[in-house]
Design a binder for these strands. Structure first.
Length: 197
DNA sequence: TTGGCGATTGGCT
DNA sequence: GCCAATCGCCAAT
């Protein structure tokens, strides 16, 4: 029913991949059932970006960023929230795209239970919220997202009509770079409204 | 060993 | 809109 995307379809460039992923689909196959979401917001962390965890080289935490295109980089932030990224360059380079928000599609009830009854609009609006809704944690770090398994990217079902860009959210270093991408008009975006006109 | 800080969230004003 | 919670990581001691 849901088919993993082939690696050859993914642009091997961080900024291009961040734009490409808008409108794509993330699929989570768990013991509780299948949950899926349409990607509506991403951020690029390209080569040489001082805000990237890969900026200082392959330190232990960021090692998964140095895997090949299409693998997962998952880390814990602020002690409580996981963030999931798609590795965006060839092996040993070190760059990724953060998935910041999903439009919930299948398995709404499962996601609602995981998110303690949050409204549908808030289920996967924000990087930590979407990992909670999809039950993604550090055990997924390094997983190939282009292969059938518990978590993968699938073919686009509804292409985004209009993709816009803004500066990224929550950063101190390199905070002015306009490396956030979002689907214009989506009701499922995170961050302050003025960043999503 | 220790202290400060983070690609955030949720609750309260 | 503001702010505390929370804990792994890393740089400095």
């Amino acid at each position: 029913m849901w088919k993993p995307i082939s690696r050859a379809q993914l642009p091997a460039d961080t900024v291009e991949l961040a734009r490409f992923l808008i409108g794509g689909c993330l699929v989570r196959n768990s013991i509780e059932g299948v949950t899926t979401g349409r990607i509506v917001e991403t951020e690029a962390y390209p080569i040489g970006d001082s805000a990237s965890h890969a900026f200082k080289g392959p330190v232990p935490r960021a090692q998964a960023m140095f895997l090949n295109l299409g693998h997962a980089y998952v880390y814990l932030i602020y002690g409580s929230s996981y963030c999931v990224n798609v590795v965006s360059e060839q092996a040993e380079i070190g760059a990724a795209v953060l998935i910041r928000a999903l439009e919930p599609l299948a398995g709404i009830e499962i996601m609602t239970a995981r998110r303690r009854g949050a409204r549908r609009i808030d289920l996967a609006r924000g990087p930590g919220r979407l990992t909670a809704a999809m039950a993604i944690d550090s055990t997924f770090n390094g997983l190939d997202l282009c292969a059938a398994g518990p978590l993968f990217l699938s073919e686009h079902e509804n292409a985004a009509a209009t993709v816009k860009r803004s500066c990224r959210i929550g950063l101190t270093r390199n905070a002015d770079a306009r490396l956030r991408f979002y689907e214009a008009g989506s009701a499922f975006l995170s961050g302050p409204k003025y960043l999503s006109p």
